[in-house]
Structures are given as structure tokens and as C-alpha cells.
């Protein structure tokens, strides 16, 4: 089994095919989208492949150490041009192919006009533990 992080972007990913912001959908389209996402997570729990998932607020801040006795420096909220993560899901699957298949399914979540969003999701493998058997 291998763990993968699926990242959904507010900004920074290539534009989706059906790229209409959610607040311009009809209420029913919003409802159908939410139902799709819930069903997707439920299905993965059922197959034993779901680990965790969370949505993130759009506002974030960069923070760094600024030396002894000084408060940390902050930079943000992010400028419009920066990459911005909207949420993440961790899956635990048998193969890279399966991870790609699931990401593809998730990207087909319905949007405006009830049509798939074709949203670009970022798929990142976890760096796993060193194996016990090495030769």
C-alpha cells in the first residue's frame, strides 16, 4: 500500500475545463456537487482506501523565525498570484495507477450546468518508511 496526497487548489493549478465559480452555479448544482464529494469519501471509506481529508480557509500567512528575542515575521495574506491550497485528501492505495484513477474520478465532480468540472488535482506520493528487508 502507498499513501498519496490529493491537493485541490484555489489558485496555482491550470484552469479547469468547466471553470465557473461555485457562487454562480444554481443551488441544485451546488447540492449535487456536495453530494458527489460526500459519496466519493464514503465510497473510499468502504473500500478501505480513505485516510483523511480537510478543507482549508482561503486566507493563509507565511511565517518565519526572525532571530532571538524577536517576534516571527509574517507575510500575507497571500497575494492573488500565489499558489493556494483549497483542501486535501489522503488515500492509501495499492498502486500509482489506482491513485490516478481515483484522482480522475474526483476531478469529474459536477459543476456548472451539472457537467464535470475537469478540475486539475495535484497527486503527491508520500515518502514512506525504509523497508525492513533491504536485500
Amino acid at each position: 500500500m502507498a499513501k498519496y496526497l490529493l491537493l485541490k487548489h484555489y489558485r496555482g493549478a491550470p484552469a479547469a475545463v468547466n471553470d465557473v465559480p461555485m457562487d454562480q452555479w444554481t443551488p441544485q448544482e451546488v447540492q449535487d456537487h456536495i453530494q458527489f464529494m460526500t459519496d466519493f469519501a464514503t465510497k473510499l471509506e468502504g473500500t478501505g482506501e480513505f485516510v483523511d481529508g480537510q478543507a482549508l480557509a482561503p486566507e493563509g500567512t507565511f511565517v518565519r523565525y526572525d532571530g532571538e528575542g524577536r517576534p516571527p515575521v509574517t507575510d500575507g495574506p497571500f497575494a492573488e498570484t500565489k499558489d493556494l491550497i483549497a483542501g486535501w485528501m489522503i488515500i492509501d492505495v495499492d498502486s500509482y495507477e489506482r491513485a490516478v484513477e481515483l484522482a480522475g474520478e474526483l476531478s469529474a465532480a459536477p459543476g456548472a450546468g451539472g457537467k464535470p468540472i475537469h478540475e486539475w488535482l495535484e497527486l503527491r506520493p508520500f515518502l514512506g518508511h525504509a523497508p525492513t528487508v533491504t536485500e
Binding site: D23, Q24, V30, I34, A55, E59
Partner: peptide
Amino acid sequence: ADAARSATNLAERLHLTRQAARIG
């Protein structure tokens, strides 16, 4: 739509998005 972006929980965000969608 602005309020949905600054919502602090998912249920509230979806509710506000729906309100924007309804008026739209």
C-alpha cells in the same frame, strides 16, 4: 460570495455559497 470565502466552517461556507447561488 465574499462571506462564503471567509466562513470559518465548512457547513457555513456551503450554506453561504448556496445563498449566493440562489440569488444569482
